[in-house]
Design a protein around this nucleic acid. Structure first.
Lengths: 237, 237, 237, 237
DNA sequence: AATGAATGAGTATTCATTCAT
DNA sequence: AATGAATGAATACTCATTCAT
């Protein structure tokens, strides 16, 4: 009767993926030092606030070097977001492997996403806060990440429908809603610091989302029963 | 057994709230002409892309006039967002009046929000797309609108818990999630144009959100049955 | 039997047309101060060498002011060249008035052109030396001035043909050649300082050019016989 | 009674002198590949518009290579202009050999110059259009070519004076004027494409220039009568 | 001879803001 | 209340040149 999705391994995998420091290790390539510095600066100042000057200063590079590696600030940010999204989705997809059912997988991916953002605050700031809507209004450039994550969820939901786990419904819409719900929670955490530890909301988040599917979210526990259970997971006694 | 939340009145009330044209009526006060012009420009170009020059040109005002009425561009945008939020929430709250139960009210407010944004595309662009994350990253200035709407929902949810309509749960978190889910759907509509008419998703959106509360969303129809009702709100006969 | 083209009046008319000093008179408009400063800087450094910074410094203006008055450095130079050409041609055309025959007029215009350039060295530098070929190679923007002067000459030559002063010939080509010949002499003067006083070559220049028309250049003296006569003006004893 | 200056040999001699292609033949020395690439780029973009980067790309060379062969971009252009001038004047001087009288020689050199530029459009663009006035205004570096050609003409004119072919006159000035006239015609051709074939104006150009000397330009035909002759060289039967 | 990453002073241009009128 | 010329710090980007390999 509980919803036991877990993936403890994930944590160690992510460590150091976006690591960075004020004194950039010279053994890193200039290209990477610039992207890492950009992550920090954009996280702090936003896209428009992030000056090339400050980025190269943090990266220990020169103007010329910056424009040797990237044709423009804009393209650099594109490359940065691309790299972030790639890694993020890679981690999410990894966490999904080995999960027994579609619903297990979807819950695992939510957990992975939140765990990653919780650990990489700056990545969350860049991806969720400072990129959207930075230029011309109808800027579709950074839609892909949201779309890809939403697609990933949708596919699992479709699987769940096919497997009879949940009733047939507009999975595209639901997946979008989920992405929005999750992002909003992370956004609040970024802006207000509430809750203190982002990961603490994972269980309730999962429970609420699963409930929205209109299915009995009680699932047979996978190999390792999870601590994530909650008491509201059933609709009737 | 259906969930019939409605609010037909809403439509007429909103009309003309943010109206604006290329040749601004001179009988409007300069203050308002500037705010209206700013709405258009920000909707098209985003916050950073919106120059004071272009705004005053559209408003038929002068530089000096702008800075007579507003101490800075930033404060002007704050005033604009403030005015928008105020009107938006006012409409939402109006639509809630007369609804019999907390769940009815919460559903009505969702419908009102979406209906307003659907009608005032530019308002949606400014509020959801082009304001967040425009400057210093941890900018809490524009949180209020999201927070207030989320608070509004939370209060109704608390009422529903108290009334025994839904099980006890973390209504703060759920309200946040709802706001995120709704915003995301609107965002997609803004960026991709899908779905063609935003309001067409209202029923499914409401159904999914209500389901996430973990209660049988079938409600006794309120006084005046709405055209907005939908038939997918229940899981079995 | 001499070639008596003169126009002493001209000199006084031109005085002060492009006047300028390092301490710009504040009673001049910013627009003019910028154009004047640009004349000096371009004369010294050439088009690409002339930085907006240095121009505004000399003009006692600010960056913002510069771009308030001109949309770009390029457009500013266009305006400058336009103004210079306009004034130059105006002077030339003025000097032509009152000359009895087409050939007298053509000779007067040559004298006026040289006199103007001799007095406005910087104008010559800008117009002849530093503008042509400054950007993309096939830049037709500054052709107009040369073309207009050459057209002016051509029309007088056509008049001379019609009046039977010179034989029929390709006046377009000849006018071009004249412009080239005159410019080259001025160019040498600009680059080498030879001859010491540019105007001293006027008589020989006129004589040689008139001879090239294939007509007996001996003309009946106009009202005031000129000092410009030379001893090679006849073809046979 | 005609003016028959000819030099049919010239054509074949010039072929391939400045040949170049987008895929530079690897058997050419890097030094030459760079100069050739520079010719193309400068012809298209002008001196300031020609970046070292683009030049080496076209040359199939590297930055380091460029600066191994040339101390600076400026010196490279000097070398390029030097090489061009050298070859150009060499061809002109060759075409002069065998001509019977100074005036024949001078006419032949004009024909050779025009023929060369007509065939080597890029050379004309570089030498006449895109080099003058590119940097510091009073740049005497590229004067030499004009000066040398003008000197060459002057010497023949002096010879003509000594031989009694033309009256005594300021041959220095006349030579300068000639160079200017010829350059202007070529310049127009470069900028406007008129006349369609540059060489078609040669006869009239020669006739007009010779007439300007104040001598009967009718000359006894040299050994080999040329196809280049024209019938307008005399004023009366 | 050759490579190409790195440099940094220099460039034109933007833009929120001020201020005399 | 309103005007619009003036301000100047800040910005993204260029490019000839250097240098370790």
């Amino acid at each position: 009767m509980t919803i036991p999705f877990s993936s403890g391994i994930l944590d160690t995998r992510l460590t150091g993926l976006f690591a960075m420091s004020k004194a950039p290790p010279p053994e890193m390539t200039t290209y990477d030092r610039i992207l890492n510095a950009a992550t920090e600066v954009i996280a702090q100042q936003g896209y428009s606030g992030a000056g090339v000057q400050e980025i190269i200063e943090r990266a220990g590079a020169s103007k010329g070097s910056f424009y040797f590696h990237f044709p423009s600030k804009e393209k650099m940010v594109e490359a940065l977001v691309q790299r972030m999204s790639e890694r993020l989705l890679h981690n999410v997809q990894e966490s999904v492997e080995g999960q027994p059912t579609p619903l297990h997988r979807v819950a695992a991916s939510i957990e992975a996403l939140i765990a990653t953002f919780a650990r990489q605050r700056r990545v969350a700031q860049v991806l969720l806060l400072n990129i959207i809507g930075h230029g011309r209004a109808t800027d579709k450039r950074f839609l892909p990440m949201r779309e890809r994550f939403s697609l990933l969820i949708q596919q699992e939901l479709d699987g769940a429908v096919a497997a009879g786990q949940i009733p047939s419904q507009d999975t595209t819409l639901v997946a979008q809603m989920w992405v929005g719900a999750i992002h909003e929670v992370i956004l609040r955490w970024l802006l207000t610091g509430q809750p203190h530890t982002l990961t603490s909301v994972t269980p309730q988040l999962q429970a609420t989302l699963l409930r929205s599917l209109g299915a009995d979210p009680a699932l047979p526990p996978p190999a390792a029963p999870s601590r994530v259970g909650n008491g509201t997971g059933r609709r009737k006694g």
